[in-house]
Design a protein around this nucleic acid. Structure first.
Length: 460
RNA sequence: GACCUUUUCAUCUAGUGGCCAAGGAUAUUACGUUUUCAACGUAAAAACAGAGGUUCAAAUCCUUUAGGGGUCGCCA
């Protein structure tokens, strides 16, 4: 059975790039009807935070990617790791290293000076004398000293790294706590991972982890290293490039399905298809089709997708989503018309709520440019006549409002713009926005006339 | 600096030696539609990183140069 995982360290919020790798893993598991596990990598006690962990879990909940089984915390598995460390020590596959941090940094400086890749020189690998006093040893694993470490990456193909590039790295710190590359290999194996899908910043960790798998005789999963997401200029994505926290997208009014659709198309595609429902993604996604090259983050496409998903969301869904944006349409009998009038011109829920508020709240100011253009000549007289006609007709449908407009256009022998422009400014305060007949229907006769009167009175 | 990796329109991508004088999408521009703004429709503009090779034939295979990204912790 396919088993994949996402394994964040709880040192901050869930990053947009992290969400994409998680999505790829999640989709792989769903596609194969396997399991998607979540593991919190909290071996570094100094840097972990409970809030960060909760934030990550919350982000997963928001996008609707659920994990199977219990969340695994590495901090709760230390005794397990210690057991393996002792085993390797007993088997002579790992050893205590008494090199001090100072000595290490001197070694590094020397190597830098010689323009070499910095690495531990293995000086305690076969050490048998008496340990020097005052240095608590770290434990290093014996990595192969000759040949190459090879593995097949599902994305990048065959990867060969010379053993000389991989040193005897630390598997347990001086205080006895295990390190990242050691515990990752153990957990991935013990959790039954079949495919490890992760960012390609881990590519160089893979040979190290293979050393661990082999020393412990554990099964090696298939690896898929996904290239990073960069900013639009192709540079590393940073906070300056806009939102990197997944939850920021919620507050900015994005729908989770739009975000996931956007992310799945970064580094993956299926022919010419752009829109993928969750079900389609699951049916079509296969990790072998992930692209090798890194992709650039581009907000325009996300906005377009978000607009698409807003336009195609049901009224009920939108009403529920809008509650977080200060708009409650639950009891509004005209909610459907209101949403129809607004959802085609909103790219985000923030914009949608603004559109709705624009209609719901009478304008307190009128856009200067618009008034200048709309309120010249006969405008006030036409508006006033129109108000009278509305009163008389008291329309009760969108169409009926439209008829009144048609009537005044015919009677006064004017173009639609002559009534449309000043009316729009009166109702909304500017010359952009939804259809007038819809707006008037939503407002009702009384409010429509009130806004017209107010505009006539206050526009000089 | 060493090692690994990557390179098709501004951006996401299709493309696995002939279906490619390179297709789709976003963004841009124009036109249409509309009382306005959108949405929508139609159209335009826009790329195989450079240089060598292999081949009857190269975006696709090879060599090399250049650019980008990653890694070099008792962080994860």
């Amino acid at each position: 059975m396919t088993v994949t995982r996402f394994a964040p360290s709880p040192t901050g919020y869930l990053h947009i790039g992290g969400l994409r790798t998680a999505l790829f893993s999640w989709l792989t598991a769903q596609h194969d009807k396997g399991e998607f596990l979540l593991r919190i990598e909290d071996t570094d006690m100094a840097r972990n935070s409970e809030e960060a962990k909760d934030a990550i879990l919350k982000a997963f909940e928001w996008v609707g990617m659920s994990h199977d089984g219990e969340v695994v915390y590495q901090s709760k598995r230390f005794s397990l790791y210690t057991k393996y460390i002792n085993q390797l020590l007993a088997e002579g596959k790992a050893y205590k290293c008494y090199m001090s941090k100072e000595e290490l940094s001197i070694l590094r400086e020397e190597q830098m000076a010689k323009k070499e890749r910095t690495r531990y020189d293995g000086r305690y690998r076969d050490f048998e004398g008496t340990a020097q006093e005052g240095v608590e040893p770290v434990i290093r694993i014996k990595a192969p000293q000759e040949g190459t470490i090879s593995f097949k990456d599902g994305v990048k193909g065959e990867i060969n790294i010379a053993s000389s590039e991989v040193d005897d790295f630390v598997i347990a710190r001086a205080d006895g706590s295990p390190t990242y590359n050691f515990v990752v290999a153990i957990d991935d194996a013990l959790m039954g991972l079949t495919q490890v899908i992760r960012g390609d910043d881990h590519l160089y960790n893979t040979p190290k982890q293979i050393v661990v798998y082999e020393a412990l005789g554990l099964n090696i999963p298939d690896f898929y290293h996904v290239a990073m997401i960069n900013n639009e200029q192709g540079k590393k994505l940073s906070k300056r490039d806009g939102a990197t926290d997944v939850m920021d997208y919620k507050t900015m009014g994005y729908l989770p399905e739009a975000l996931l659709n956007f992310l799945v198309r970064l580094g993956w595609s299926h022919g010419d298809q752009e829109i993928f429902s969750l079900a389609e993604m699951i049916a079509l996604f296969e990790p072998q089709n992930i692209n090798k090259s890194s992709s650039n983050y581009n907000l325009d496409k996300l906005l377009w997708l978000n607009a698409y998903y807003i336009k195609n969301s049901s009224d009920e869904a939108l009403i529920s989503l809008l509650k977080d944006f200060g708009v409650d349409l639950t009891a509004n009998p005209k909610a459907s018309v209101l949403l129809n009038a607004t959802k085609e011109r909103a790219k985000t829920l923030v914009e949608l709520s603004a559109q709705i508020k624009l209609i719901a709240i009478a304008p307190t100011a009128y856009d200067e440019k618009s008034t200048k253009k709309a309120f010249k000549g006969e405008a006030k007289a036409i508006l006033s006549t129109f108000a009278d006609m509305l009163m008389l007709a008291s329309p009760t449908s969108k169409e009926a409002y439209h008829s009144v407009m048609e009537k005044i256009v015919a009677e006064k022998e004017i173009g639609f713009g002559k009534i449309g422009m000043p009316l729009r400014v009166s109702l909304l305060g500017s010359m952009t926005g939804s259809g007038l007949d819809e707006i008037m229907f939503i407002l009702g006769v009384e409010e429509t006339i009130a806004r017209i009167d107010k505009a006539i009175a206050s526009i000089g």
